[in-house]
Design a protein around this nucleic acid. Sequence first.
DNA 1: CCGAATGTTGGACGATCGTCCAAATCGGCT
DNA 2: AGCCGATTTGGACGATCGTCCAACATTCGG
Lengths: 227, 227
Amino acid sequence: MMRRLSLEQRRAELIDAAIRVIARDGLATASTRAITAEAGMPLGAFHYVFTSREELISAVIEQVTDEERLAAWFEANLIGEPASLTDILVAGLDAYLRLLETDPGREQALLEVAMHAVRHDQPAVRAQWATYHRAALASLDHAAELAGVRWVEPVERLARSLTASLDGLTIAWLTDRDSEAARAHIRFIARSFAALAVPVVPAAQAPQAPQAPPEHPGGHGREDTAC
Amino acid sequence: MMRRLSLEQRRAELIDAAIRVIARDGLATASTRAITAEAGMPLGAFHYVFTSREELISAVIEQVTDEERLAAWFEANLIGEPASLTDILVAGLDAYLRLLETDPGREQALLEVAMHAVRHDQPAVRAQWATYHRAALASLDHAAELAGVRWVEPVERLARSLTASLDGLTIAWLTDRDSEAARAHIRFIARSFAALAVPVVPAAQAPQAPQAPPEHPGGHGREDTAC
DNA sequence: CCGAATGTTGGACGATCGTCCAAATCGGCT
DNA sequence: AGCCGATTTGGACGATCGTCCAACATTCGG
């Protein structure tokens, strides 16, 4: 029975079920039996699709790219009104925080799986890190374009800092569940990045020393006024 | 046999052994047998000291406060030479990064145990978070005093941001092991915090609007010159 | 120096794990 | 319709887990 599902469908459903189980009860309780039960499949279906539990975990890492974070970021700035870079960054970060508040277990699951991979599956964690990096790059480019600014530091560096800042934001909120403090931290992050951008002047297309930018103001556009 | 060890000594040695095992092979492999073997004790010694494995994990969380991070931070600024706030913060953060580079497994162990506690032992993780917060507070006060500045935002908020930034720094390095990029991120963090401090002027003890500080320069003292 | 009390231990137990495989089931072809 | 090869499955297996406890060792009052 159940011939109706193709191998790829079974594989995808098992991965989804695994994510739900890990989000609900943690990686330790995500046994082959728990996952197949969650997916409504017989136990034998597991090793019919995956050769081992480790392979399923690697598949989870590959599957769960940062698409949600990126989507939340971009959707947050759909409103076409012109805004300061700080506001744009705050909107993007706040969109991610709402995502985190909506489904904390999922983000915690991603963290648990990533930490597992750091120990036991270095290639997978490198790939996931690269995906995160691309998402951060796209977010920074998008924000700079919206605000009409350019970054005064290599955007590659800034992308890594943004990824690290997102992880820090996530861990802190998962630990104390203090959304108000998290939003204060978001403003801190946004202002920190905004301090590293300058308005793009159409005249100055000329090359400029990449390092040692010639004095850049703390912010730009609408100056930050409060906390 | 082995009557020589008191209950407290056994307890402490089991906790240390557990940390070593978790640091080496992860929380999942830290079984009662692995821990007692690491400690050079018979299996029975485990439930002679702890009532359950969960109790041991909680004890690990309580034991491993942030004393190492704090110690590294303060020792980094023992050299009494006057320095800019940015340099002081960089020195403290770099000291922590060296700690992380020296013993990555240990910091990863703390993260794994903390994530476990977020799911299964909320009180323990709250206590650990409070300890982290106190350490961050002390670090910020220490840095401000050394640099002769005061923070223009509530130091409580800044302490939480510092804790989150440290966690983000840790996760990023554990993931890509890129020490150079991590040090660039450290400079980013240091400058971000330095932007939120103003020189303390002995004359101006007068109250000042805590929020909306009257325009503060991006940095202070020695202006940041490069990346 | 010897029982009794205390402290200590290694093996036993039931549960659960990942993995495997022989049997059951199903879809298509004659 | 009835058989056959491919697909699917639930139970079996050995390993390992946390926990417990009867047996062992040690100490000490007498």
